[in-house]
Nucleic acid binder design. Sequence first.
RNA 1: GCCGGGAUGGCGGAAUUGGUAGACGCAGUGGACUCAAAAUCCACCGGUGGCGACACCGUGCGAGUUCGAGUCUCGCUCCCGGCACCA
Length: 864
Amino acid sequence: MQERYDPAQIEPAAQRVWEEQGSFAVTEDPTRPKYYCLCMFPYPSGRLHMGHVRNYTIGDVLSRFMRMQGHNVLQPMGWDAFGLPAENAAMANGVPPAKWTWDNIAYMKRQLKSLGFGIDWAREVATCRPDYYRWNQWLFLRMLERGIAYKKTGTVNWDPVDQTVLANEQVIDGRGWRTGALVERREIPMYYLRITDYAEELLAALDGLPGWPERVRLMQANWIGRSEGVNLAFPYDIDGTSGELRVFTTRADTIMGVTFVAVAAEHPLATLAARRSERVRAFVDECRRGSVMEADLATLDKQGVPTGLFVTHPLTGAKVEVWVGNYVLMGYGEGAVMGVPGHDERDFAFAKKYGLPIVQVIDVEGQAYSTDAWEPWYADEGTCVHSGPYDGLGYQAAVDAIAADLEAKGLGRKQVNWRLRDWGISRQRYWGCPIPIIHCESCGDVPVPDDQLPVVLPEDLVPDGSGNPLAKNAAFLACDCPNCGRPARRETDTMDTFVDSSWYFFRYASAGNDGAMVDARADYWMPVDQYIGGIEHAILHLLYSRFWTRVMRDCGLTQVSEPFTRLLTQGMVLNEIYSRKPASGRVVYYNPAEVEVQLDEKGARTGAILKADGQPVECGGIGTMSKSKNNGVDPQALVDRYGADTARLFMMFAAPPEQTLEWSDEGVEGGFRFMKRLWRAVHLHVSAGPAPALDVAALGPAQRDLRRLAHQTLAKVTDDYGRRRTFNTAIAAVMELLNAVGRFDDSSPQGRAVLQETLELTVLMLSPVVPHATHALWQALGHAGAVVDERWPEPDAAALVQDTVEIVVQVNGKLRGRVAVPAGADEATARAAALADPGVAKFVGDSAIRKFIYVPGKLVNVVV
RNA sequence: GCCGGGAUGGCGGAAUUGGUAGACGCAGUGGACUCAAAAUCCACCGGUGGCGACACCGUGCGAGUUCGAGUCUCGCUCCCGGCACCA
């Protein structure tokens, strides 16, 4: 065995062995329990970032642990290869998105291999390949047939200068990112998927996902947003045209307090009013400014204009004026709301601003109501007042009575409403999966027949920022109508990239099948047993995947409804942000590697200077690693310097997987030190020759202590990996064990036997985290086989037995002493031992003992 | 604005079911080894008071429940993630 720990030599050697023996190539084996461990596939942005390293290390640790526990483990990898950054890179460098993407994939694949992840590369998927995205197109056509896919108008960000649709990300402070032009909202036709048809099931099934974090289930439930209320109509007759303005409300009990109604700028009544009033028209135009982002809309200053149009209150028959409000969203409910300023905070502010009447119609326990200022309780449920026939009714009784009266008049009914909206999948972009539709002048929108799939995306175009290059590409556009055979035009919109990522986990399990989207292999592997990925995907990606899987189920492609049995949402990787703001011009960000931190004599931070010029820089706190803040750390530099094992170890040790992780160069250094200590400990042991066989009955106290600690550690590490998924505490426990090994100075035959067992357990326990070093160490400890093929050991119950335990003694809840008692001592024994302790006696004194609490094996509390 | 989460020494974190606050690691300080440095090893390492034994205080802020609260309840503050076209 080599004396020096040399990752540059042992890591490629271990990887070669795995490669040669095909360690991670798996087949469907019905005789073993399967374990499908899936990590969210990366967007091929160029290089791996620390978030990837963290994600895939967590997955690899679990995969290797489950494999050692006897499971048939599938750990695949692929590329979420369509998307906006490839188009941006194309605009910047003039390289076609396809070439840029494939170059990135090649580089990042090498990086993944150098990190030693146990991936079955034979199942690799790239969503930009026609043999993948043809099945997007195929299932889309099935959805069209079933009415799940349909066409309607939707709202997009429009850059009036570039004449192009912008992604939300490309809108900065309401302006186009390239042109700086004020963005407008524009209505265009788009394809939608009826995810709302599945809302009820998607919500109810959350209860059947105990392996998901509670917070993710809550976020999904709130996103789907089931609410029970009343859908009601305000009839109108305007210029001889009669109609009904429909609104949905969860607070029908406040209907007698309605003093106005507000509609969205895109609402038909707003359009009608705009034709009659210059002021309304100007306001409606004004509302078109800005982006479609919900966060922008929700923080807008609430504004409105009266339309001069009136509708009739469905119960009182009173005239109610229609307003146009910039805070009413057309895509939401009916695009109109009833205004009850007495009991809705937003309506209250709106009424105050525009001098609309405010009426109290709900009373909460006789509290004094005043229209001068809003009080939070105004929005509470209570008893109806000033509400005519409904006076005195509570919330539910009032809603029931009002719904019944509305129904009798044919002007309303109870309704369940969903916050969830249908999924718009059309994108006016080049680098995506073409939507398989042909537009024919005589036949309309015609689906591409199955035998003409895939509609292949040309890979040699270079976008220039002025719209979708497909729309200017004659070769792509030209086609014949499948229906009538006459020349027609191909659809140029591509699909949302969330479509690509909604089912890739099925494809890993049906890799290479050119005849079908999925096959029987997917029945073996699905559902995914453990899914791992960033918390930022907690809603959209996971919800779309749950929806898409159900559509596949309803098309007879799978029996599975829920794609992911267990979910681990990993936290983000953060780093310090350093910057300078010159007197004039923009903030300049400096990478932490260029900055030297200054400390006081206690090690506390006092400031930071730029290494290059020695002048101070500002510490701008901490944030996710990003290009814009120039605070990224390149994992490749780390692997080159310390090796993959140290990178993996630090990632797992620095924080529990669900928490954000703060980057620390010094912490990495510490991880490397631990690797060297581990290596040295094994080297020291094996250089004294083979150890004799262990004779458990012949061990002395110190030998028994080390053996007990080793098996205690094994029990803890097994629980931490398997149940708690807290890899940081597992590693800390092994560090403690190795510290004990360092203190264990015993070269007797049985001392060496205990040490051999302890080091073997240490190597096995660490092998999921640092597989390369442990591969070499396992062989150094005298084993011919590879550690990757070893079984996970079980703690020896006999080694764990302890004769006496130390318990803590509190007096009035404060720690006053510790006493040793026999394991399993009863309360009387513990009490006698506790009161006999001089430190305890001092605080008990002559006082009467009012209460005595005994937690066996842990503590006693004497209350005096 | 709405939904979800978080806050513990100089720093990352530990405390698993309400039961020893600060495991493990980093940084720092002192020492050993060395011509010297690196590497390695040993010791100390929340605050205040005390020669010391020890005592008191201490888990973002303010209340509460309990024999006992970092952990539970209520009310705040700040930070992070998501908000439907970034992935």
